[in-house]
């Protein structure tokens, strides 16, 4: 049964407990690649939230009304990639035409995440968890929000790392990966919270 409480629980679960970057290890490439600067990280994350929602909006009906009735559930991955890629291109054109300001701020990030694994992951996860449409949308938004939180946190951490003087062999990517691991461990602390929150 869909209740507001249930939807919020899904949102929080997707944001913190099943955080796509830090718990499910999807979308690592933008997480490591674009988290150097805070403003870039923000732009990227907002684009991810946007694309996750739109992708869910389209892939959920396709799966439910087209693939499952025809017994083609196994075609999920290919169809989703195809649809998401085409859709993001379309959205980009529409934005460029009608909302140039938003297009300029999302900028290069939109095409970058067309077939990002986190986006595809959300769509497939929606189906696997047998969510209803509303639940799927909340899950998509929560997942995007989780990505935003992970990116912002990590961008902040990386800026601090820049100011430290790590041992020579750890400089650059190694220390980044280590800190990503530690941040990921810290997110394990959220496990179980949401269930108890709504008791």
């Amino acid at each position: 049964m869909i209740t507001i409480k249930g939807l919020i629980a899904i949102l929080l679960t997707a944001t913190f407990i099943n955080n796509y970057v830090l718990q499910q290890f999807l979308g690592i490439c933008p997480f490591l690649g674009v988290s150097k600067k805070l403003d870039q990280a923000t732009g990227m994350s907002i684009a991810v939230i946007f694309v996750m929602m739109i992708a869910t909006l389209v892939t959920w009906p396709i799966q439910t009304f087209l693939l499952t009735p025809n017994g083609l559930g196994y075609m999920q991955t290919i169809v989703f990639i195809l649809v998401i890629a085409a859709l993001v291109q379309l959205v980009e054109m529409v934005l460029k035409r009608y909302i140039p300001a938003l297009h300029a701020s999302l900028g290069v990030y939109l095409p970058l995440i067309t077939t990002n694994c986190a986006v595809l992951g959300v769509c497939i996860n929606n189906i696997d968890s047998e969510f209803t449409f509303a639940q799927a949308m909340f899950n998509a938004f929560g997942s995007g929000l989780g990505f935003l939180i992970a990116m912002l946190m990590f961008a902040g951490i990386r800026q601090h790392i820049e100011d430290c003087d790590p041992p020579e062999s750890f400089k650059g990517l190694p220390i980044t990966l280590i800190s990503a691991g530690i941040v990921s461990i810290s997110f394990f602390g959220f496990a179980g919270i949401v269930d108890n929150l709504f008791g």
Binding site: I62, V79, L82, V83, A86, L90
Partner: peptide, 12 residues
């Protein structure tokens, strides 16, 4: 089905 979806996307 995949072809039709692909064609729809391409036309769009």
């Amino acid at each position: 089905i995949v072809t039709v979806i692909g064609i729809i996307c391409a036309v769009m």
